[in-house]
Amino acid sequence: MSNIVCTHCNAINRVDAERDALAAKCGKCGEPLFAGEPADLASEALERQIARSDVPVLVDVWAPWCGPCRMMAPEFEKAADVLEPRVRFTKLNSDENQALSARLGIRGIPTMILYADGKEKARTSGAMPASQIVQWVSGNLCKS
């Protein structure tokens, strides 16, 4: 059993490992637990994902005015399509969530932060194509 936090209502769902997580729906709101695309979350919802979800969480910290962020957005979506449900893909708008961005030590955007077991596992800044995102995430999850 794995705990999966719903990106729509923040409910914690227990999903059997034998069950297809892509087909799983939230027991509270009925929305799919994985949509194959990044979830744009506010601070509290993101912190709940990191703290309570059993799957690794990848955060793309971005801003609407950032050219490289806008260029990377479709690539981040393509990577989500490849790696979900093994990894939860999320986006954090640094303009709308300035306190959390500061607490995370964001110095430049786009910045991706990978969390596993509630702890930061890796971080990188700069736009990259989907294939490189997939390689970066997979490589960092394989490290002990």
Rank of each mutant, 00 (worst) to 15 (best):
12 I>T: 14
8 H>D: 12
121 K>T: 15
29 C>R: 05
131 S>F: 04
23 A>R: 14
3 N>C: 04
127 A>E: 12
56 P>I: 09
58 L>K: 07
44 E>R: 13
112 M>K: 11
75 E>W: 08
124 T>A: 10
10 N>L: 13
55 V>D: 12
1 M>V: 00
75 E>Y: 01
23 A>I: 06
119 K>G: 01
129 P>H: 08
59 V>K: 09
74 P>R: 01
144 S>H: 02
87 V>C: 11
15 V>T: 03
21 A>K: 13
67 G>L: 11
46 L>N: 11
105 G>C: 10
118 G>M: 00
62 W>D: 04
116 A>P: 05
94 S>P: 04
14 R>W: 01
132 Q>L: 13
33 L>C: 02
82 V>F: 00
98 Q>C: 04
47 E>P: 06
16 D>I: 01
131 S>A: 11
78 K>H: 07
77 E>N: 05
40 D>T: 10
106 I>T: 09
129 P>S: 03
34 F>M: 00
72 M>G: 07
136 W>A: 13
124 T>Q: 12
61 V>R: 03
4 I>R: 00
48 R>N: 14
18 E>P: 00
15 V>C: 02
20 D>Q: 06
63 A>K: 07
28 K>G: 04
51 A>P: 09
55 V>W: 09
96 E>M: 05
54 D>N: 13
70 R>P: 08
111 T>M: 06
60 D>Y: 01
90 T>N: 07
39 A>W: 00
106 I>V: 13
83 L>C: 01
30 G>W: 01
16 D>L: 00
104 L>R: 05
38 P>K: 11
133 I>P: 02
66 C>K: 04
36 G>M: 11
77 E>A: 15
32 P>A: 07
105 G>N: 07
69 C>P: 11
104 L>A: 03
73 A>P: 06
88 R>H: 02
91 K>G: 10
134 V>S: 05
29 C>E: 02
57 V>L: 03
23 A>G: 12
45 A>W: 11
34 F>P: 00
126 G>P: 12
141 L>W: 10
36 G>L: 09
104 L>S: 04
125 S>C: 09
141 L>A: 09
16 D>M: 01
6 C>D: 03
115 Y>M: 04
122 A>G: 11
63 A>G: 14
79 A>D: 08
105 G>M: 08
15 V>Y: 01
128 M>P: 10
13 N>W: 01
43 S>T: 14
116 A>L: 06
120 E>D: 02
137 V>M: 05
128 M>Q: 12
120 E>T: 02
142 C>Y: 07
